[in-house]
Write a protein that binds this DNA or RNA. Structure first.
Length: 241
DNA sequence: GCGACAG
DNA sequence: ATCTTGTCGC
């Protein structure tokens, strides 16, 4: 069987911040460019791309994957991966600085338009209103949404038990996202607008991308692929010494 | 000051 | 994110 395309190399942008204070300053500058009005792609048309990242902390390695799906059929159209060194620690609120260099490299390796980018994490549901999905959208100009598995620092009433039921995700006062039931009687996911897509559309896209499981097909494909890419890099390329 | 905290 | 066996259920 033929091997997958070789992973792209992860390179850290020259202007990438090296400190937490620097990262917060970048967020405060870029967040002014977030657009939450654009309608974004129509649900079920064009493409939707899942991005995800896996780590090998012991080796300081990160692997990212971008998987493009046909939004109508949810069939895989193209896959790309990127592998390289981790360049930022995990700090709650600064996840984008850890994940984006690898994710951007994987997106760059695609030959087809990504369409809507679905991120594992948050968009504007973020302490500074500039989470991973918003950051990615502003840097690339792509429409992006965040679908997270945990409520982070936000709160919500439990949504009804049926698929599609939803309640506001708030910081106490303002709605920053939605707790959305994608499967009956299963823990909800946490959807927020990233860039170029309003919250209601982000919710509609998420429901369309979750015909069977709790998490979007985009996320499921990207998750599996980045783990495979990391494994291949560890017990292949840089594994023997 | 202490604890919580997307992945 | 990651460390990890078996097990219940469609």
């Amino acid at each position: 069987m033929r091997a997958r395309p070789a992973p792209a190399a992860v390179t850290v942008p020259a202007d990438w911040p090296a400190t937490e204070a620097g990262a917060r300053a970048v967020q405060d500058t870029l967040r002014a460019r977030v657009d939450l009005t654009g309608p974004g792609p129509e649900v079920g048309t064009g493409t939707a791309t899942g991005v995800d990242v896996a780590y090998d902390d012991a080796r300081g390695l990160v692997a990212a994957a971008a998987v493009v799906l046909d939004a109508a059929t949810l069939d895989v159209v193209e896959e790309a991966t990127a592998v390289g060194p981790v360049s930022f620690p995990y700090v709650p609120g600064l996840l984008a600085f850890r994940e984006l260099p690898a994710v951007l490299a994987a997106l760059d390796a695609l030959t087809v338009p990504p369409g809507l980018v679905v991120c594992d994490g948050y968009g504007v549901a973020h302490p500074r209103r500039f989470g991973l999905a918003s950051h990615l959208g502003v840097l690339t100009g792509l429409a992006a949404i965040g679908v997270a598995k945990n409520p982070f620092t936000f709160t919500h009433e439990p949504p009804g038990e049926r698929r599609g039921d939803q309640t506001p995700l708030t910081d106490g006062t303002e709605e920053v996202g939605r707790a959305l039931r994608t499967r009956a009687a299963v823990k909800p996911v946490y959807v927020s607008a990233g860039h170029g897509v309003p919250l209601d559309h982000a919710v509609a896209h998420t429901l369309h991308l979750t015909p069977t499981y709790r998490l979007p097909e985009t996320t499921r494909h990207a998750d599996a692929l980045c783990r495979a890419a990391l494994k291949a890099a560890v017990d292949g390329g840089a594994g023997r010494d």
